[in-house]
Write a protein that binds this DNA or RNA. Structure first.
Lengths: 200, 200
DNA sequence: CATTTAACTATACAGGTTGTATGACAAAAG
DNA sequence: CTTTTGTCATACAACCTGTATAGTTAAATG
């Protein structure tokens, strides 16, 4: 990594942080290449040089917040032997990620619904989560083989819904504490796999 | 209702239909007052005369699709004596509404997350749905009084999450048929109130 | 019937946006 | 020492929203 690239990356990060701050401030109309550049203390053309377009900047911002977290903890969840424990951890880790920057994620998703270019990069990450859901259901199916096939596919869809950002957000928006939201999600997930928790 | 108002209302409707069509066409960037006016065969200034601003047009569009449907069927659901039946119908009617114009609703909600003015009008309707959820849980609590209080409040939140557009949309987006989605929602709602359906 | 009013339109404008073209510049890399 | 890379300045085209001003026509009103 050359000295120049290091400096450039530091600049990139400053820009992304400025973009984040402005995306959080009340109205999306305030979010323009000009204001982001000014807030980052950088020329507007630098943004175009680094991110090519406004959509490119938003995609980069999405990757930026997605990369910190996720990977490590999620992989660990899948190393647990018990599929119930894995399910438990999977939900908890994802909820933690959604909770880490809720307002920002909500706005990024909104932009993704309106701009097909940004939308594609979100759908990609969605697909990875779906794969996680499928693996969990398959493992559970292997452990407790009383589940007929049409059921399993439905379970995957339901689990994906329960682990989505939108689900977490609508639960959290009514003021619930993080732990309570996770408890609700766990209980709903039990219903998906017809599991009755031992205690209570 | 004067003859003039009738003609004006017909124009309003033409504009709203044009706005709907353009909001559905791929990219939100194509949605401008100019293109909407052209598609409706009307001057751009007529839009400002009728809706005051772009946000006003989007709010009106939201009211427009919200008014057809909902009211009648929802009220009927609450007339059922059995709270389980009411819950059942409540979910089915709302799902039907979300399904009636999914793409459009998704985009309108996205705009609402980015524009605080449009957002307020969406939050209002959300509050009405929340009230419905509360009534259902309270009725159930009255019928089957084995539910302690912290539980009931949680049930309301969970039910609101399950009946939200976002929940329906993420389930439907994976290709499920409407009836299947409703079945999934019913099953998850049973988990909320710890209800076991009589026949498997 | 005469007059007012409501809905709509035409033109023009101010101030904002994105994205590109062109060229310069300094510091790091080779 | 020469080249490359990241940044910046200025300028521009083509949009956008929202407003001001004034004109038109058909319906409502007295």
């Amino acid at each position: 990594m050359t000295r120049r690239k290091v400096a450039a990356n530091r600049n990139r990060e400053r820009i992304l942080l400025a973009a984040r701050a402005l995306l959080l401030s009340q109205d999306f109309s305030e979010f323009s290449m000009e204001t982001v550049a000014r807030q980052a203390g950088v020329s507007r053309l630098t943004l175009y040089y680094q991110f090519k377009s406004k959509a490119g900047l938003l995609e980069a911002l999405n990757d930026f917040i997605a990369r910190r977290g996720e990977m490590g903890e999620l992989a660990e969840a899948f190393r647990a032997g018990d599929p119930i424990r894995t399910l438990h951890e999977f939900i908890r880790v994802l909820a933690g990620f959604w909770d880490s920057d809720r307002e920002l994620i909500r706005r990024l998703r909104a932009v993704g619904s309106l701009d097909s270019e940004v939308g594609r990069s979100l759908a990609e990450r969605n697909e990875r989560r779906r794969h996680g859901c499928r693996v969990i259901i398959e493992r559970y199916y292997h452990w407790y083989p009383m589940l007929p096939e049409p059921w399993a596919s439905r379970a995957v869809d339901t689990l994906q819904m329960l682990t989505s950002f939108e689900t977490f957000d609508t639960l959290a928006v009514s003021g619930r504490k993080f732990d309570e939201v996770v408890q609700i999600l766990h209980k709903q997930a039990y219903a998906v796999i017809n599991y009755t928790p031992p205690s209570i």
